[in-house]
């Protein structure tokens, strides 16, 4: 085979549609074999193209069958999921019913617990208190308190609980009422030690508002003066009308005095230990209330 004939075959090998350049045209003009090869090549592959054509009707028929297969698969999938659901429901109906009843009971209990907030407040400790003008000796017994109920600690130490959890201990004499997350202190002198769980609780006096941030404080409330000494931790202190507000750390005493011209705020230092004179002494000796004033009782 001549080199030109080999080149011609390579041309046919490379292209699906034969495009002849001048060199190949010149070769074809002089080579009968390659002319004949091109003729047979073109005719054969033209015939092949016809043979490999998918008629429009066959095409539509195939598409129809594919679409039918798809539809059948979709419906069998939904049938099998229906069947499996029905099967499971049938075989597990007793268990499912039991679980449903259990779930409803649990949900009911949960809902009743959630819908009625636990507002219970209790007082306990070792102290003598006045509750609704009735003298009660607490000997570690737990007594229920109503919201806003007035309590007077005559002597000793009490623990106040909110939602069955102890939040604050009070040593000393104090006239107060308990509210939700709030001690409304009227008068008296006492040391209040708040547990960490009481962070955010509030003490309200006639002149000031104290937000607890994990603290032991001493309250000294008299006719025209309210004072708070921060012994441990810190509080967010403010005047009741909100005109003054600051964070007060341990060792600081805030005194608010009522004057004819208005309220006077004095900041003083205090010991970081509970003063003997405040609650401990009072705890030992008790106190009596005359009008709005508390006075320590003499021993015996």
């Amino acid at each position: 085979m001549k080199a030109d004939c080999e080149n011609f075959i390579l041309l046919l090998q490379e292209h699906s549609e034969t495009v002849l350049d001048d060199a190949h045209k010149e070769h074809l003009a002089s080579c009968a074999n390659c002319r004949r090869l091109l003729e047979i090549h073109d005719r054969s592959f033209a015939r092949l193209k016809q043979g490999f054509t998918l008629s429009a009707s066959a095409r539509e028929a195939i598409l129809g069958k594919v679409q039918k297969m798809i539809a059948e698969e979709k419906s069998s999938k939904s049938r099998s999921s229906d069947f499996s659901l029905a099967f499971w429901l049938r075989s597990w109906r007793l268990q499912i019913s039991f679980a449903a009843v259990l779930f409803m009971l649990m949900a009911g209990l949960w809902y009743s617990g959630k819908s009625q907030p636990d507002n219970t407040m209790q007082i306990s400790g070792s102290a003598t208190i006045l509750k609704n003008f009735k003298k009660i000796a607490l000997e570690n017994t737990l007594i229920q308190l109503e919201t806003g109920e007035k309590v007077t600690i005559l002597n000793g130490r009490v623990d106040l609980c909110w939602q069955n959890s102890e939040k604050v201990s009070i040593d000393g004499m104090l006239d107060f009422a308990v509210q939700e997350n709030n001690i409304d202190a009227k008068s008296g002198q006492a040391t209040l030690t708040f547990l960490p769980a009481a962070a955010g609780y509030i003490i309200t006096t006639r002149l000031m508002l104290v937000k607890i941030l994990g603290t032991t404080v001493v309250l000294e409330l008299s006719d025209n003066q309210d004072a708070i000494s921060v012994i441990k931790g810190k509080v967010e202190w403010s005047l009741l009308d909100g005109t003054e507000k600051r964070e007060v750390s341990a060792g600081t005493k805030m005194i608010v005095t009522r004057h004819p011209e208005g309220l006077k705020v004095t900041e003083d230092i205090c010991q970081k230990e509970i003063p003997e004179s405040s609650s401990n002494q009072l705890l030992e000796v008790g106190a009596k209330k005359t009008g709005n004033k508390w006075t320590p009782l003499e021993k015996n």
Partner: peptide
């Protein structure tokens, strides 16, 4: 792939040569 196509074209060439 090129060799496979070439093989087919050579078969065609043989047909031409025989005729």
């Amino acid at each position: 792939l090129r060799n496979m196509v070439l093989k087919c074209l050579q078969s065609l060439r043989e047909i031409v040569d025989e005729s």
